[in-house]
Design a protein around this nucleic acid. Structure first.
Lengths: 340, 340
DNA sequence: AAACCGTCCGAAAAGGCTTTCTGTGACAGT
DNA sequence: ACTGTCACAGAAAGCCTTTTCGGACGGTTT
């Protein structure tokens, strides 16, 4: 404890003194400004190295009015959708000189307000708001002095910048994939009808099947809950009522897992008799089912990265507003391999 | 675009001018200092409100030398272990006036170094390093000017502050639970033997079973991989070789799910014939198995919260170093209900 | 009337850095 | 010898806030 006096972090003044120059020169030397003789520059850099000098970003931020920080506001950290988005954003920022303040509002508007106030007082240069559902959310209140980008959950205000996954198109992709596998009697089983994600995917599926001159088994989408149990139950019911079903498009991997279990127990062979495709491409589910599960991936990291990029552009004044819907992709596994 | 001139965020000077006082008085009024007349104070506060003034935390930080920020360094954001820890920490900080910089090093030491440098230049007051495995990790290099707390993955240096879950004790808890369910022929099936978590839990399990005057089925722990497939395979093997097995302690919920599937297919009744307990208490797995899965919960959010608290203490100079192992708890579900 | 007190307010410094502007000395050109 | 140019270094202002210290002012006490 009683070691030397506090090793206070070195300041530019210390470096300048050690190098025998003024702080102005030291600053210029360190930041690669032109008006410094090479010999002087190396002397300064050596001094900085010796003192393990790290420029005080706080002071610099104060001076330049640019802090190089942004706020990442999530409503549920545990949500498996917000994490990849957050990763993508962190990734995009991490490369540059931007640091990210993480705030979890826990789905509470008061808390969110509190965090925003704190972030603004820290002079973040922008905000990314990450939601956990694709349902549009109310925009942040009060006109903020910094740009805001909404990721995954778009803003209700179409004038805001929002980045999300194209669930309608994804529904079509899934159906097209099953059609490509030679399936004609396809059922669509999904989760809670109150979710925009469920509605959008259903809409896309309906459109795609109609374009193929077919219709969904049962003539409709089976809405239920996002659980394995629902998948099991509805699958056995459908198998019972429509024995000629040969394809399942499931609104989530959890549902798909339930469907797969049910099919196995009914003696159906996937993918020989029936093809199954899930949604979310959640590794713990897709790679542990028998057979492994084909699934739609929403490219959420990409959503995060694009959101970060759009935020940059907005900070620099090149703002393009509106909802941007990014394409999803299908990750093919055994559950939908075409069997001759 | 061509709206009014930039609505530059108001500064204290603006507030003071609007209220007709000096900036010193304005500052005192806003911060609740004593030497301001009540009438003056309200005048200032009204001005601040009108301009929606938010004190510049950057300037304040520069002046006071305390930024009110900490760095949260994680090695894998997607890891399901680091997220809850991170949540707990964010939670503990969020309550106060501390903001959190999130950095993901992607398991790369160079990147980690880069982030640390950036964080230090932003003058964070402390760091929490969150790992994704319980194996001790090399401590951060270079003696940092701020305190560091390691969460989940402890530091190799016992002089550092580390918070993690007590996996040895947890192994004992799991065995004790199965014993309490009346089981005597218990098998321990776990993941990769190179993981400290696997070794620790195994050690605790061996000790507990020995204290009960029994031994594990097969006389040893079955190490393998953290997958359902391994669980399925090893379970059927054990059932074959040791038909009297009546309890499974699984090193992860994934393994447990495989074990459960295998037992069902072998016609065994869980929990009547055999009790099963998993590890991690991962909702997607525990609540979707048939029957639902009893599991050990590592209280990771608590780990995060304690880590945050310890960091605070260290920042304030009250540092208690060493590895702190927090207790786990058992969450009982149907898979281990004692059946008379 | 002088000394004193309490209350309230403002001037100014400080914190670390960047940037602009000014200054200095060396050198070439006239 | 004088002016102009160039390369380099330093002084100082400014960013926004907090805090200390002193000043102004009205009123009370000796």
């Amino acid at each position: 404890m009683a070691s030397a006096e506090t090793p206070r972090t070195a300041t530019l003044t210390d470096v300048a003194r050690l190098a025998g120059v003024s702080i102005a020169t030291a600053s210029k030397a360190i930041n690669g400004r032109a008006q410094v003789r090479a010999e002087t520059r190396t002397r300064v850099l050596e001094a900085a190295e010796q003192l393990s000098f790290a420029p005080n970003a706080v002071a610099r931020g104060l001076l330049q009015g640019r802090t190089g920080t942004v706020g990442l506001l999530t409503s549920d950290l545990e949500g498996r959708f917000s994490i990849p988005v957050l990763m993508g954003a962190e990734d995009a920022f991490g490369a540059g000189q931007v640091s990210v303040f993480l705030c979890d509002a826990r789905g509470d508007a008061i808390r969110e307000q509190h965090h925003i106030r704190a972030l603004l007082s820290r002079r973040v240069e922008g905000l990314i708001v990450v939601g956990s559902r694709t349902d549009p959310r109310p925009p942040l209140t009060g006109d903020l002095p910094v740009p805001v980008v909404y990721a995954y959950a778009p803003s209700e205000n179409p004038a805001d910048i929002s980045i999300t996954a194209d669930n309608v198109e994804a529904g079509g992709l899934a159906i097209d994939h099953l059609l490509a596998c030679g399936r004609r009697r396809i059922a669509h089983v999904t989760g809670d009808a109150s979710y925009a994600a469920a509605q959008d995917r259903s809409r896309g599926a309906e459109r795609a099947i109609k374009e193929a001159g077919l219709e969904l088994v049962g003539g409709r989408t089976f809405f239920g809950s996002w659980s394995e149990g629902w998948g099991r139950g509805v699958a056995s019911m459908i198998l019972d009522q429509y024995p000629d079903v040969d394809g399942f498009f499931c609104g989530s991997d959890q549902i798909a897992r339930g469907v797969l279990d049910s099919l196995r127990e009914s003696g159906k062979d996937v993918p020989r008799d029936i093809s199954v495709i899930g949604f979310d491409n959640w590794a713990v589910l897709t790679t542990n089912t028998r057979p492994q599960l084909t699934s739609v991936d929403m490219n959420l990291e990409q959503v995060g990265r694009i959101a970060a990029r759009r935020l940059f552009e907005a900070i620099e004044g090149r703002a393009a507003s509106g909802i941007e819907e990014l394409p999803c992709r299908i990750v093919t596994r055994e559950s939908s391999v075409p069997v001759p």
